[in-house]
C-alpha cells in the first residue's frame, strides 16, 4: 500500500479558501492569520472545521500539489492557532469541570462518565433498523478517523512517564496489529469499506463530510498536537476504548442483519474483543497511571473523556436527525452500487 496522499477539498468559506489558496503556493507566503475567528457554532462550522482539518492533515498525509514544508511553516502554525482558539473554547463550554472526588480516582471517574453517555442510541438504532444506505453513510463518516485509527493518540507516547507509556504502548501495539499489518485496525476498516463497495482510499470522501464529523477528528488532533493537552489526549483514548466494545458488537450485528459477511464485519468483531481488553488498560493503567504520576493533568484527563462524549453526541445527533427527516447525513448523498 502506497503512502497517504489526499487532494485539497473544495473550500467551504473564506477561511478554507484563504488556506487552500496559500497551500498551493510556496511556503511560507500568502497566509495571514485572522486576529479573531468569529463563529456562532465552531463545532459545526463547515469552513472552520474543514480548514482546521486540512491544517492538521499536513501532519498525517501528503497533499497533492502542496509543498511538505508547509507543515511547520510559521504562518500556517499561526493560522491554525487562530482556528483552534474558538474550537477549544466551544468544546470547553460543553464540558463540566471535574470535582475532587473524581480526581481522587480517575479510573473510577471514567467508568461513571462513560456510563452517562449523553448521545442518542445510534448503535442500537443501526443494529435493529438501520438501512444499508445508512450503514454506508456511517462508515463514510467514520472513515475520517478509522483510516488513521490510533495515529492521533500515538502523539502522546513521548510525553508520558514509564507506567502510562507502557500502558499506551500495550494498547497501541494491538491497534497496529501486534506486528501483523493485516490485523491493523485501520487496515481492517479499509477492508470493511471495500466489502461495502466504498472507496477505502484515505481522504476520498472528505468533501462529503460535515463539519461536525471533522470536529470529532479535529478534537483528537487538537489534543495530540499540543503536549500541554496530554491529559486530554489520554482521557480521549480511555473514553473511546470504554465506549467501543458494545457499540461495535451492534454495528457488526447490523451488517450481519443486512446480509454482509466476515469481510465487512471483521473490523467491528475485532473491536468487541480488543476493546474489552483496551478499556481496562486505558482507564486504570494509562489514565490512572498518568494521574498518579502527574496529578496536575488529572482534571484534563477527565476533560478529554467528557469532550469526546459531547462531540460524539453532536455527531450522532446529526446522523439520527438527518435520517429521521429522510435525508442523507452527508453533505452530498452517496451513489453506491449495491447489486
Amino acid at each position: 500500500m502506497a503512502g497517504r496522499l489526499i487532494t485539497l477539498p473544495a473550500p467551504r468559506g473564506p477561511l478554507s479558501e484563504r488556506l487552500f489558496e496559500a497551500l498551493e503556493g510556496e511556503p511560507d507566503s500568502g497566509l495571514e492569520a485572522p486576529p479573531v475567528v468569529e463563529s456562532s457554532d465552531p463545532i459545526a462550522d463547515e469552513d472552520l472545521q474543514l480548514a482546521l482539518y486540512v491544517a492538521y492533515e499536513l501532519h498525517y498525509t501528503a497533499i497533492d500539489g502542496v509543498d511538505e514544508r508547509w507543515e511547520w511553516a510559521p504562518t500556517l502554525v499561526a493560522f491554525r492557532a487562530a482556528l483552534e482558539r474558538p474550537f477549544e473554547e466551544a468544546v470547553a463550554e460543553l464540558v463540566q469541570p471535574a470535582n475532587e472526588e473524581e480526581l481522587a480516582s480517575v479510573g473510577a471517574a471514567l467508568q461513571r462518565i462513560v456510563a452517562e453517555d449523553p448521545g442518542p442510541p445510534l448503535s442500537r438504532y443501526m443494529e435493529t433498523q438501520g438501512t444499508l444506505e445508512q450503514m454506508h453513510e456511517h462508515v463514510v463518516h467514520r472513515s475520517a478517523y478509522q483510516l488513521k485509527e490510533a495515529d492521533p493518540h500515538s502523539w502522546a507516547i513521548p510525553r508520558l512517564s514509564p507506567v502510562p507509556k507502557a500502558a499506551l504502548l500495550e494498547v497501541q501495539a494491538d491497534e497496529y496489529g501486534g506486528g501483523d499489518s493485516k490485523r491493523m485496525h485501520s487496515v481492517l476498516f479499509a477492508k470493511t469499506m471495500a466489502a461495502l463497495r466504498l472507496d477505502p482510499t484515505y481522504g476520498h470522501y472528505l468533501d462529503r463530510l460535515p463539519g461536525v464529523t471533522l470536529a470529532t477528528v479535529n478534537l483528537i488532533s487538537s489534543f495530540g498536537m499540543h503536549r500541554r493537552r496530554r491529559g486530554a489526549l489520554v482521557g480521549h483514548l480511555a473514553g473511546f476504548e470504554m465506549t467501543s466494545s458494545i457499540p461495535n458488537r451492534r454495528y457488526g450485528n447490523a451488517l450481519r442483519r443486512l446480509g454482509l459477511g466476515r469481510e465487512a464485519t471483521h473490523f467491528y468483531d475485532e473491536h468487541v474483543e480488543a476493546d474489552a481488553v483496551h478499556e481496562n488498560i486505558a482507564a486504570w493503567d494509562l489514565a490512572g497511571g498518568l494521574a498518579a504520576d502527574e496529578p496536575a493533568v488529572a482534571a484534563d484527563i477527565l476533560f478529554g473523556a467528557r469532550a469526546l462524549l459531547q462531540v460524539e453526541a453532536r455527531w450522532a445527533t446529526l446522523l439520527m436527525d438527518a435520517w429521521q427527516r429522510g435525508e442523507s447525513s452527508l453533505r452530498s448523498p452517496l451513489a453506491v452500487a449495491t447489486a
Binding site: 462513560v114 490485523r183 474483543e273 476493546d275 481488553v277
Partner: peptide, 26 residues
Amino acid sequence: VERRTIALCRCGKSQMRPFCDGTHKL
C-alpha cells in the same frame, strides 16, 4: 488467541465466554 493480552469474563454475562465483551458495564 490473537493478542498478547486477553480479557477473560468475570461477570459471567459475556456473549463470547470465556472472553470479555464489555457486557459487565451493562
